[in-house]
């Protein structure tokens, strides 16, 4: 991308100045898949891009709707666009040198292995409970070498303090309050959805930081 304001080297130096060169290099080399570009995924993507994660793979089949704007990182001008295209556009403005690849497809049990072949860490960012369970079961069963970060429970108006991160399996982390179901609670508000997304994003960064330190 043509950029007359700042060169890639200048921007990388600025990011590295905030977190240290060694950590920045780890983040730059990381490959993270984000499954769903809604309230969780769009926020996770922006947090990871700002942190200097070098390679994001965003998968979503949906289009931007007006009802998304209360919590998802899109603009009125993007209504009707494919979410993956709108998010790539926004990421390019925020962090132009982040390598973003997109797939506008529905993730199913049958395409999990081929979709995530090149990714090290998989972030589940769906909204449906059954879809979440399908993806988590498929990744844990078929791709045990991948790290997996998922989310469950962020609906309603409960305290922000109830959103947390829990280590469930060897390479599986779950974020949320684990109980607030959108089918039972009254709706989804930006702060709690974003908090949950930020728990996911921070879990991803900690995995990157830890994984490379262990030499894996």
């Amino acid at each position: 991308m043509k950029n007359n304001i700042i060169s890639k080297e200048e921007l990388c130096n600025a990011l590295a100045a905030k977190i240290g060169r060694e950590r920045f290099e780890k983040f730059q080399n990381a490959r993270v898949a984000i499954c769903g570009a809604g309230g969780l995924g769009s926020n996770v993507a922006i947090a990871l891009a700002r942190s200097g994660v070098g390679h994001l793979h965003i998968i979503d089949f949906d289009k931007v709707e007006a009802t998304n704007l209360n919590r998802q990182q899109y603009k009125v001008s993007q209504i009707g666009m494919n979410k993956v295209d709108a998010l790539r556009e926004n990421l390019r403005e925020i962090m132009p040198f982040c390598d973003v690849t997109t797939d506008c497809v529905r993730i199913e049990e049958g395409n999990v292995c081929e979709l995530f072949d090149g990714d090290t860490i998989i972030c589940e960012a769906f909204d449906g409970a059954k879809d979440k369970a399908m993806l988590v079961n498929a990744v844990l069963e078929k791709m045990p070498d991948k790290y997996l970060v998922a989310a469950s429970g962020m609906a309603g108006m409960d305290s922000a303090n109830n959103i947390r991160t829990k280590e469930i399996g060897r390479r599986f982390y779950l974020c949320g309050d684990f109980v607030s179901d959108v089918e039972k609670a009254d709706g989804l508000v930006a702060p709690r959805v974003m908090l949950c997304a930020m728990h996911e994003a921070q879990a991803v960064l900690r995995i990157i930081d830890w994984d490379n330190k262990e030499g894996n």
Binding site: G36, G38, G39, L40, G41, A125, F126, D127, G128, A129, K130, K132, A133, V136, A150, A151, S152, G153, M154, A155, I168, G169, L174, G176, F178, V179, S180, D181, V182, E183, A185, L188, V193, C196
Partner: peptide, 10 residues
């Protein structure tokens, strides 16, 4: 044992 029962929302 961990039984994770997913709830909707995202």
């Amino acid at each position: 044992v961990e039984v994770v029962s997913f709830v909707g929302g995202g």
